[in-house]
Write a protein that binds this DNA or RNA. Structure first.
Lengths: 213, 213
DNA sequence: GATTATGATAATTTCGACATTTTACTTGTC
DNA sequence: GACAAGTAAAATGTCGAAATTATCATAATC
């Protein structure tokens, strides 16, 4: 889904690069470098960075430019807790409200995730592909929650968590689909077993927090 | 607290104008109009709007510019529910973690809010002042929750809710400090009575939802 | 009469250059 | 030697115009 504006495209690329930690925590994002890297002018760059600043994925200080956000264990714990909190609530609603199309999308996304999981990703790019499927599956889970605002907030927490997860991965921690969590989540969701689904999700998200410790 | 960049200043002004519904739901935000209104060039305008888009306070469609977000009763209910959900969680943490400086800030903000509440605001501008104090009090309540991410998410929900609240106000609904909610919240918070505080907050937020019905 | 081309107008988006501020370095002083 | 002041270089932020794209009224076709 390529956007029609340059600013939109560079936004997407920046989002990817931030989530995959192409820029270290706190690193300054200089315009001349970025201009070369993405081959765009300053105007769309600043727009993309401003939008990311609104999302909390870069920080901006007046007259001092943009930076990749700092990273700390405390911050990570808070983000994990928030994601857990939001995703559980959204999942509960989705299980209550979801219809046939929700189920269909869910099994489709699970299928793609499973295909991607079979081959252990080796390069950063391969891992990006896996993360996309992983995100798609979790989004499909909560998509039917009915609240656009909740979905946005969840997505924000999920993106920030992904950044930390991949920081951990760079240090050798692998956390790909432990204990068949995703398959169990799928089954419980389709069976409309809210209690079981929430418990699995809680463990699933909680476990990812340990990997950075 | 005036920001050093033009983009930052126009961001703040736009935020105020959006919250006070200077632009109707779905209204297109044309650049020539905005340029005149705020007396700035397009570059800082676009940056401010992009940042607001990241926050979800304006919508952007490629090549079709920016718009004030649509408004619907359903959306409002979801935002109210989210705000309740987030603010209760944050308040619970704040009551558990807050120290002396939290209490001090809280009583100070309550004092200012009370002063502002004594005079029933008449103009839109006077109401903006009241809203600022109101926001400050609620922020002081949750400030000590310990999680920067949670605070951001809460602030986002609160701002969106304010927009709807003031939309209701324009239609003649007054919802200023009913039943001494704020004083009772203050007392319960200082007394570290989490259970009572959460119940008051739940009612307090819930009541504002009715005003648009 | 309804629907589809067509062109003029208006709007958004982008670029390149300029102004302003920060940063880093050098020099001078205690 | 440490610290402060001043200066050059680099980076951010801003403007005005150009390029691209959408919008809307008008004319043409089925």
């Amino acid at each position: 889904m390529t956007t029609s504006t340059i600013a939109g495209r560079v936004f997407e690329r920046l989002l990817d690069d931030l989530k995959s930690n192409q820029f270290g925590p706190g690193e300054r994002l200089k315009f001349e470098e970025m201009r070369g890297r993405y081959d765009v002018g300053v105007a769309p760059l600043r727009e993309a960075l401003s939008r990311l600043a609104g999302l909390g994925l870069v920080t901006q200080v007046g007259q001092k430019g943009f930076r990749a956000p700092e990273a700390s264990l405390k911050d990570y714990e808070h983000i994990i807790a928030s994601r857990k909190f939001l995703e559980k609530r959204a999942l509960e609603s989705a299980i209550a409200n979801g219809g046939d199309s929700w189920e269909n999308e869910l099994v489709a996304m699970f299928h793609q995730l499973q295909k991607a999981t079979r081959i252990k990703p080796r390069t950063e790019q391969e891992y990006s592909v896996w993360e996309r499927h992983h995100t798609n599956f979790h989004r499909a889970l909560v998509a039917a929650c009915g609240s656009a605002w909740l979905l946005n907030a969840w997505r924000s927490a999920f993106d920030q968590a992904e950044r930390y997860r991949r920081l951990a991965m760079k240090r050798g921690h692998w956390a790909i689909d432990q204990k068949d969590d995703h398959e169990r989540l799928l089954r419980a969701a389709i069976a409309r077993d809210s209690k079981v689904a929430l418990r699995i999700l809680d463990d699933h998200i909680g476990r990812s927090a340990i990997n950075l410790g």
